[in-house]
Design a protein around this nucleic acid. Structure first.
Lengths: 192, 192
DNA sequence: TTGTGTGAATCCCTTCACAGCG
DNA sequence: CGCTGTGAAGGGATTCACACAA
């Protein structure tokens, strides 16, 4: 959402313009925004600056989220190196892995910690989010341990549905599922 | 979806059981499946084998999808090493990158090709899908080139909305957006 | 005049409830 | 019986259309 209004200098933007960028309709944009209050000027549109600030607050991006990365494999390292990570308000406060060969390795200024320390790290570092970049077989257990230690949300890259209490939001990223979604859309277009 | 029925041996499964695993309702499962025909036995449930086979066909997974990976950075390598990739019917027929230092490098049995060859590779290897694991600044151009060369769908890991003809499905995977979704859900739960 | 904010109408998806088949 | 498949009901989201503010 925020991507749509990286714009600057241009002081104002209309629902019509936002809609074009977001693959949606002007009415949709207005309805959505009005849901959180009415911060547009009639006849003009929305102030870009004000819109950015308001959305930051609404999305909870006006704070830094402390994140622990579980799993220092390829996916983990790809995420860790992701350039926008810190810029967007996410602070990776620890990296843990269960592989003794990896423990102690330095990633930037972080040292990879043993997986057993997960709970204590979550508590001591006050991590709110955990990123699961572990094999499918380990995901459920790590999720449970994380929730018990007080984590508030989980980003799950393991290709399994993890079961957690329903007040803990989980976002799943699953490569194969994304590819299957493409496969389905292409197939459906061919055989109606 | 298919994950829900990796089961075997057990010959039959009810909408109720599927619903539990999929975080949904029995009625929902029946409605969804009935959309594609009626292949359940009343009083029994769905034959696991038949269900698997039917869904494979519906989702277009009864064929091998030829994929080209664009971008041999960290995300690219994480995807390339993804174990289930080939097993699930996706064949990475080429890897391209624009970095001269990477070109020629061997990844498994694939040699990294220069980015200029993208179009010819798509055509010669009959690639149907492209995975964009490139920086945001390059994504739009690579997408356009891919579509012009005949690609049918795009899996986009770059943190930008790419614009393509609307008959070309695009699936976006964006780490920061996933984290923002978590952030929003947690924030909303606190401030109702 | 322009473009928001919003009731009203509409559409679509989910849930209900049950007839009917194995 | 048990469980599917499906019309009917319900509810939430999208679209329409317009009064009104800048």
């Amino acid at each position: 959402m925020l991507e749509l209004i990286q714009d600057d200098g241009g002081v104002t933007v209309s629902s019509e313009q936002l809609a074009r960028r977001g693959h949606t309709t002007a009415a949709q944009v207005r309805k959505d925004l009005s849901h959180f209050g009415s911060f547009g000027k009639r006849g003009l549109g929305y102030s870009v600056d004000e819109l950015r600030d308001r959305l930051r607050i609404i999305l909870g991006l006006d704070r830094v989220w402390r994140v622990i990365l579980v799993g220092a494999g390829r996916i983990g390292s790809a995420l860790f190196e992701y350039p926008d990570f810190k810029k967007r308000g996410y602070d990776c406060v620890a990296v843990v892995d269960s592989d003794p060969a990896k423990i102690g390795e330095k990633w930037g200024e972080r040292v990879i910690r043993p997986a057993e320390e997960l709970e204590s790290l979550i508590k001591e570092l006050h991590a709110a989010l955990v990123i699961l970049a572990v094999p499918a077989s380990a995901a459920q257990l790590v999720a449970e341990r994380s929730v018990n230690a007080g984590v508030r949300g989980i980003l799950n890259f393991a290709p399994v549905q993890i079961q957690v209490p329903e007040d803990i939001p989980v976002e799943n990223v699953n490569l194969v599922m994304e590819l299957e979604a493409l496969s389905f859309q292409i197939t459906r277009a061919l055989t109606p």
